[in-house]
Computed example of a mutant assay.
Amino acid sequence: MKAVLISLWHYRHFILSSIKAEFSGRFARSKLGALWMILNPLAQATIFAVVLSEVLVTKIPDIDNKAAYAIYLMAGMAAWGLFAEIMTRCTTVFIDYSNTLKKIAFPRLCLPLIVGGSALINHLLLLAAIAVVFLFFGHLPTMAWLVLPVGMLLIVLFAFGLGIILGLLNVFSRDVGQVMGIVLQLWFWFTPVVYLMTNMPKRFIAVLNLNPMTALVKIYQNALLYGAMPGMADLLVPALISSGMFIFSFWIFRRASADLVDAL
């Protein structure tokens, strides 16, 4: 693993320039350019806020704020969106860049890092847009928001590790990518993003707690809505699962990388 990390460090400029090129290509011939990276998530966040707080008037128990559910949902959607984008793109990244892998010699793990870096930038811009919407509701930042980088790191490690494993499997069996589209939809509804765990029947709560994303999404929701910092006990299991998945993906990649290009 150390040798892999060293090789990735040597190619850090390639990774950073590739992330920059990806954004440049995305907004080519656009007059507003990268400003769309702010406008799109801001529009998404605003629509959620207006519909949920003004139209549906959904409320959360023990919180006297009509925008509470909108804040809860946007926090959960932000956490889930980061996970889903990294995992989805990593699942197909080796196939998407198959021609590049065949023509240029570079550490193959650079590709997941490139798509992961791009997803992380999108996520940060979405959080900035959500913060602006929160201000309109009078929901001011608290010290608990400082825990977001921890939640972000755990989500990235988990999504990156799982995405690499699925990306390798997808090279050898293209059905994996198709199946994961369905699995992600089911996984989303087994994660408390649009509903409260307190509203679920008790027999389902144990199942939801087995979902690694439940604890990771909860970090965002507690910080952004309740202003609550997670305890060490709340972070221990997610940290072990995320770091374990990340390390395991390196081991799998080392065993499969020799046959990767041939399978493409």
Results as ranks from 00 to 15, higher is better:
7 S>W: 09
7 S>C: 01
11 Y>A: 15
13 H>Y: 14
21 A>T: 10
21 A>Q: 13
22 E>I: 01
23 F>I: 02
24 S>H: 12
25 G>R: 14
26 R>F: 10
27 F>Q: 10
27 F>E: 10
27 F>S: 09
30 S>L: 06
34 A>H: 12
35 L>W: 11
38 I>V: 15
41 P>V: 00
42 L>G: 07
48 F>W: 14
48 F>E: 02
50 V>A: 14
51 V>M: 10
51 V>E: 04
51 V>Q: 03
57 V>D: 15
58 T>Q: 15
60 I>R: 13
64 D>F: 03
64 D>S: 14
64 D>K: 14
69 Y>F: 15
69 Y>G: 01
78 A>Q: 07
78 A>N: 06
81 G>T: 01
81 G>E: 02
81 G>K: 01
84 A>I: 09
85 E>H: 11
90 C>L: 03
91 T>K: 00
96 D>N: 07
98 S>V: 03
99 N>W: 01
102 K>A: 13
107 P>S: 11
108 R>D: 08
109 L>N: 09
110 C>S: 15
112 P>Q: 13
113 L>Y: 08
118 S>Y: 13
121 I>E: 05
124 L>Q: 06
125 L>H: 11
129 A>V: 01
130 I>S: 00
130 I>N: 01
133 V>S: 00
136 F>K: 09
138 G>T: 09
143 M>C: 01
147 V>E: 06
153 L>G: 10
154 L>E: 03
156 V>H: 05
158 F>T: 04
162 L>S: 09
167 G>C: 03
170 N>I: 06
172 F>E: 04
176 V>A: 08
180 M>Y: 14
182 I>L: 14
184 L>M: 15
189 W>L: 11
191 T>P: 00
193 V>M: 04
196 L>C: 06
196 L>K: 13
199 N>E: 15
201 P>A: 12
203 R>C: 02
204 F>V: 05
205 I>W: 10
206 A>N: 08
209 N>C: 00
209 N>V: 00
209 N>L: 01
215 A>S: 15
215 A>I: 00
217 V>L: 11
217 V>K: 08
220 Y>A: 09
221 Q>I: 10
228 A>T: 14
231 G>V: 04
235 L>C: 05
236 L>F: 10
237 V>G: 04
237 V>R: 12
242 S>H: 06
243 S>L: 12
244 G>T: 07
250 F>G: 05
253 F>E: 01
255 R>E: 11
259 D>F: 11
